[in-house]
Design a binder for these strands. Structure first.
Length: 359
DNA sequence: CGATGCTTTCCTGGTT
DNA sequence: CAACCAGGAAAGCATC
C-alpha cells in the first residue's frame, strides 16, 4: 500500500478532477507502486482496496462538482471497500458531516443486489465487533463466537443456505479453536483447515462469490481477533525450521523474493493480473490456470529484465518445481482444463491468504 | 573466488 | 499444425 503516493496524487488532483479519468491501464506489473485511479470501476465495492476507495471518492467529488479538499478524504483514506460497506450512514456523517450522506448514498448505488445480504451480515458483524472491542484482548482461553456472527441469530432475511453454512462454520470454528488451545503447534494448520472447510461448504452451497468473500473476510477478522500474542509467537517460532539432522537450516539464498513461483503467486493476488492473466481454478487445492501464457511470460521477462523470455522457457522453469514439490501434478479428475493448469504443492507457501496473514 | 541455488536456454520427443 | 508438456543437459547469474 502506498498512501503517500496517493496523497501525492491528491495534491495533483486539481488536474485529475478537471480531466476525464484516464482509461489507459497501467502496465500490468504485479505489486507495482502506481495507483490506478480507474481500477475501482472494474471491481465490486466489496473488493476495493484503500487506493480504490480514494479513487472512487475522487470520482464522486468530480461528478458532483465538490472541491475534493472540502471532503474529509483523510477520514476515509484508511478504509477498504469491504470496511466501507459495513458502515452506516451515521458512520459516514461522523467522518464527514457535510458530504457524508452523499458519499453514503453513492456507495449504496454501487452495491449490487448481492451486497444487500452482505450488508445485513456486516451490520451484524459490526455490532458484535463493538462489543468485542470493549473486552480484554489479553490471553484468553475462551473462543466463544458471538452467536450473531454466524447465523444463530434473530430472524433475518439471510437465505437458508447461508444460515446452514454459517451454522456449520460456527461449529467447525469452535471445535478447531478450542482444540487449538491444547495444540498450539497445530494452530495454523487447524485454522487453515477450518477456512478450507468454510470455503468448501460455501462453494457446495452455491453461494455467490460476493457472499463468500464477505464470509471469508469476516472469518479471518474473527480469527485474528481471537489469536493471542502467545499463540502468534508459537506460530512464528515454528517457522524457525531445522533440517533432518537437527541443524539450523542454511540461510536461504536469493532472498529478493524474485522467484518465479512467488511471482505467479503474487500475480494471483493482484487484481491487475488475476483473473485476466492468471486465475484460480481451485483456491482450496492451490490449483491455478495461466490464462494468457505469453503475457505472463512477458511480465516475468520484465521482472527479470529479460526481453527474450517466452512461455516455453517459463514453463520449463515451472517444471523444475515438481522436484521440489513447489508444484505438484494436477489431479486428472477432469475437473480442470488439461493445459496451462498447475497446482501449488507443500514447497510453496503464501498462496493461502489466511496462512500468509497469520505467519 | 568457489559453492550453491535458481533459473535460462536449447533440445528431443510426446500429447492435445 | 500450433500450442503445450516433459525432462535432460549445460550455461548464466546472483547470492552466500
Amino acid at each position: 500500500m502506498c498512501l503517500p503516493a496517493l496523497l501525492d496524487k491528491l495534491s495533483e488532483s486539481q488536474a485529475i478532477l478537471r480531466s476525464p479519468m484516464s482509461t489507459t491501464p497501467f502496465k500490468p506489473i504485479p505489486n507495482n507502486e502506481k495507483v490506478d485511479l480507474a481500477r475501482f470501476r472494474v471491481k465490486d465495492p466489496v473488493e476495493w482496496l484503500v487506493d480504490d476507495v480514494v479513487s472512487w471518492m475522487l470520482d464522486v467529488a468530480k461528478r458532483h462538482g465538490i472541491p475534493f479538499e472540502e471532503m474529509n478524504m483523510h477520514r476515509f483514506a484508511n478504509l477498504t471497500g469491504q470496511q466501507m460497506i459495513t458502515m452506516t450512514e451515521q458512520n459516514f456523517i461522523e467522518r464527514d458531516p457535510i458530504w457524508g450522506p452523499l458519499i453514503y448514498n453513492e456507495l449504496r448505488k454501487n452495491l449490487s443486489e448481492d451486497t444487500s445480504v452482505i450488508d445485513e451480515i456486516m451490520k451484524k458483524y459490526n455490532t458484535d465487533e463493538e462489543t468485542v472491542a470493549g473486552t480484554s484482548i489479553g490471553p484468553s482461553t475462551s473462543f466463544d463466537i458471538p452467536k450473531t456472527h454466524l447465523g444463530a441469530a434473530a430472524p433475518s432475511p439471510i437465505v437458508p443456505q447461508f444460515q446452514s453454512l454459517t451454522q456449520t462454520l460456527n461449529q467447525t470454528l469452535n471445535q478447531t479453536l478450542n482444540h487449538s488451545i491444547q495444540l498450539n503447534s497445530n494452530l495454523s494448520q487447524n485454522l487453515q483447515q477450518t477456512l478450507n472447510h468454510s470455503l468448501a461448504t460455501s462453494l457446495a452451497a452455491g453461494l455467490s462469490s460476493g457472499i463468500f468473500c464477505s464470509l471469508f473476510y469476516n472469518t479471518r477478522r474473527l480469527l485474528d481477533s481471537k489469536l493471542t500474542v502467545i499463540e502468534r509467537r508459537s506460530i512464528v517460532d515454528s517457522k524457525t525450521r531445522k533440517n533432518r539432522e537437527g541443524k539450523a537450516r542454511k540461510r536461504s539464498q536469493h532472498t529478493k523474493g524474485n522467484k518465479l513461483w512467488e511471482f505467479i503467486r503474487d500475480a494471483l493476488k493482484d487484481p491487475i493480473t488475476c483473473p485476466s492473466i492468471v486465475r484460480w481454478e481451485d483456491p482450496i487445492e492451490g490449483v491455478f490456470r495461466i490464462v494468457e501464457s505469453e503475457k505472463l511470460a512477458r511480465l516475468w521477462g520484465e521482472r527479470k529484465n529479460n526481453t527474450k523470455m517466452t512461455y516455453e522457457k517459463l514453463s520449463r522453469a515451472m517444471r523444475t518445481y515438481y522436484e521440489k514439490q513447489i508444484l505438484v501434478p494436477v489431479p486428472k479428475t477432469g475437473l480442470y482444463p488439461k493445459k496451462l493448469v498447475y497446482k501449488f504443492g507443500p514447497g510453496a507457501h503464501g498462496w493461502d491468504n489466511i496462512k500468509e496473514e497469520l505467519l
